[in-house]
């Protein structure tokens, strides 16, 4: 269970507040107009932005001051999810041990993760030798290896084509279900939200609202969301 307790994030003139709870195992889309603060919200939860006020709790434990790598979460960014100078295996290995001390056990886990995301045998490649979709799969495989209970997706698949993107999202849903992970996913596409996320956090006008049923929200959008969705 992720709790944002009277959280307030300020960046110059910009301010965003959030005060709600996300139940464990939930899958939430994070939607809202451009510049409303969707990525900012994820960055604060991941520990890249110290909040101006309030607390972030996981299972009741305060993680507001924890270092990003010590939080019970994995995050996939829009880009730069892999180190281009390290092989796929070593990139994945970082998910198991940041010092990259990899024994046979670790290598077996890495190979299994590669199998799971459909990249069997590509461990020796460098990221540049993979397609965009394959790179996303490596990043997802690393999240799989880290097995943290919370997964934050800051539009990591935005650069992929529509078919590839829905493949990836389906894979995310499968993996999250297997691991019982809670997912927060920034999304611009109402169809993605409907397909994968039963719940949606609306970020608009300086507030991130508590999760709300996605279908309900999209069928009867409040004015800010309606203007953003258009039509």
């Amino acid at each position: 269970m992720l709790t944002l307790d009277k959280l307030r994030i300020t960046l110059g003139d910009f301010s965003l507040s959030a005060d709600f709870t996300v139940p464990q195992g939930a899958r939430c889309a994070v939607m809202g107009p451009s510049g409303a603060g969707k990525s900012t919200l994820l960055a604060a939860i991941a520990g890249f932005l110290p909040p101006a006020a309030g607390r972030i709790l996981w299972q009741g434990q305060n993680i507001t001051q924890s270092a990003p790598g010590a939080r019970p979460l994995s995050i996939l960014f829009q880009d730069q999810n892999l180190f281009p100078h390290l092989s796929v295996t070593r990139n994945l290995g970082l998910g198991l041990d940041p010092k990259l001390r990899l024994g046979p056990g670790e290598h077996a886990k890495i190979d299994a993760a590669l199998d799971r995301v459909g990249l069997t045998g590509l461990g020796a490649r460098k990221p540049a030798e993979l397609s965009g979709g394959q790179q996303s799969r490596v990043a997802l495989a690393r999240a799989l290896l880290r097995a943290r209970p919370l997964l934050l997706l800051d539009e990591p698949f935005a650069a992929l084509g529509p078919a590839l993107k829905s493949d990836m999202l389906a894979l995310v849903a499968e993996i999250a279900a297997e691991q019982g992970a809670t997912v927060l996913m920034v999304s611009h596409d109402p169809d993605d939200a409907r397909a994968l996320c039963p719940q949606t956090i609306l970020v608009a006008e300086g507030t991130a609202q508590a999760p709300h049923a996605t279908t309900d929200l999209l069928d009867h959008p409040p004015p800010a969301l309606a203007a953003y969705l258009g039509g």
Partner: peptide, 22 residues
């Protein structure tokens, strides 16, 4: 790479060896 390294807890000598020097 700061954010990626921080999210993976890549710090200290490991960061120097695996990220900074290369």
């Amino acid at each position: 790479y700061d954010r990626l390294a921080a999210s993976l807890n890549l710090r200290g000598l490991a960061r120097l060896r695996l990220l900074t020097l290369p």
